[in-house]
C-alpha cells in the first residue's frame, strides 16, 4: 500500500506525541531527583546530585534495595526452573490433564493482583505464617511463574520433537537428551522468561503491599513516602529503581549480542 507524504508525516507526529505524553512524566521524575530544591518547580534553578549520595548512604534505602533484590532474584531463579518444566508439560508432552493444566495456568493472571495479594495474606494468616519478604516471594511466584511458563512454552512449541527422538536414537539417555538438546534449544526462552520474571517482581507493588509484612520493597516505600513524608529522596530512589532494571536489560542484551556474533563467526560457544 502506498502512503502519501502528508499521511506519513502525520503518522510520525502522532507516534512522537504518544511517546512524549507517556514518557515525559518519567523525565520529570528524573529532573526532580537532581533538583536542589525540596519541591519540583520549573525551571530548575540549581542542580544537585546530593540526593543520590544520601540515598546510597541511607540504611533504609540499602535495606529496600536488598529486600527487593532478594525477592526478585529468588523469584527469577525459581520461575526459570518451574517455567522450564512447566513449559515441557504445557507444550511438548501428551498427558491426560494437559488441557486442564493449560487453562489452570492462566488463572492467576486473570485475578486482580490486589485480590490475589489479599487472598494470600489471609491464607498465610490462617495457616499461622507471619508474613515477611519470604512470603512475598511465594506471592510473586503465584503470579509470575505462569507467565514464565508461557514465555518458555512459546519456544517449546516451535521445536521439532524429532530432535529429541533422534538424540535418543543415537544412544542418549533421558538426562543427556535434556542436557544436550532440550535444554540448549529452550535456553533463549528460559533467559527471556528470567528477564520478565525479574522485571515483574522488581516493579511489583500490589502483591508486595499485602504480603511483605514488616519488610518493605522499593515500590512499597515509594508509595508510603508519597502518601506521607515526601522528600527528594523519593524521585531519587525511583530513578535508582529504573536504573537497576535498565542495567539488567543492557547486560542481558550485550551478552545476547556477543553470543550471537560469536556464533556467526563460527566460534564454538559452550
Amino acid at each position: 500500500m502506498r502512503i502519501g507524504r502528508a499521511t506519513r508525516i502525520a503518522l510520525y507526529l502522532y507516534g512522537v506525541l504518544v511517546i512524549a505524553f507517556l514518557y515525559l512524566p518519567l523525565l520529570s521524575v528524573g529532573f526532580a531527583s537532581v533538583s536542589k530544591a525540596r519541591y519540583l518547580t520549573f525551571p530548575i534553578k540549581r542542580y544537585a546530585f546530593q540526593w543520590y549520595g544520601k540515598a546510597l548512604e541511607s540504611y533504609t534505602v540499602q535495606d529496600l534495595l536488598w529486600t527487593s533484590l532478594s525477592i526478585a532474584g529468588i523469584v527469577t531463579v525459581i520461575s526459570m526452573i518451574v517455567g522450564f518444566f512447566g513449559a515441557l508439560a504445557f507444550a511438548r508432552y501428551q498427558w491426560r490433564f494437559r488441557g486442564v493444566f493449560q487453562k489452570l495456568i492462566l488463572l492467576p493472571i486473570f485475578f486482580p493482583q490486589a485480590v490475589l495479594g489479599l487472598a494470600l495474606l489471609m491464607w498465610f494468616n490462617s495457616i499461622g505464617i507471619i508474613p515477611d519478604w519470604k512470603t512475598a516471594v511465594v506471592a510473586h511466584l503465584v503470579w509470575i511463574s505462569p507467565i514464565a511458563t508461557l514465555v518458555i512454552a512459546i519456544r517449546a512449541y516451535s521445536f521439532d520433537p524429532a530432535l529429541e527422538e533422534a538424540a535418543r536414537d543415537m544412544g542418549a539417555s533421558t538426562w543427556v537428551v535434556l542436557k544436550e538438546v532440550t535444554g540448549p534449544l529452550l535456553m533463549p526462552g528460559v533467559i527471556s522468561a528470567g528477564l520478565f520474571s525479574f522485571l515483574l517482581s522488581w516493579g511489583n507493588f500490589p502483591l508486595s503491599l499485602f504480603t511483605t509484612g514488616a519488610d518493605s520493597t522499593l515500590p512499597e516505600w515509594l508509595y508510603a513516602k508519597m502518601v506521607s513524608g515526601y522528600s527528594p529522596l523519593v524521585p531519587t530512589v525511583g530513578i535508582l529503581s529504573i536504573a537497576t532494571s535498565m542495567i539488567l536489560l543492557i547486560v542481558a542484551f550485550t551478552i545476547y549480542w556477543f553470543v550471537r556474533s560469536a556464533r556467526e563467526r563460527g566460534a564454538r560457544i559452550i
Binding site: 524429532a162 527422538e165 533422534a166 535418543r168 536414537d169 543415537m170 544412544g171 542418549a172
Partner: peptide, 11 residues
C-alpha cells in the same frame, strides 16, 4: 528403548 538399540534412523 531406542537409546539401547544398536540401530539408528535418519528422520
Amino acid at each position: 528403548p531406542a537409546n539401547l538399540r544398536p540401530t539408528c534412523m535418519v528422520f
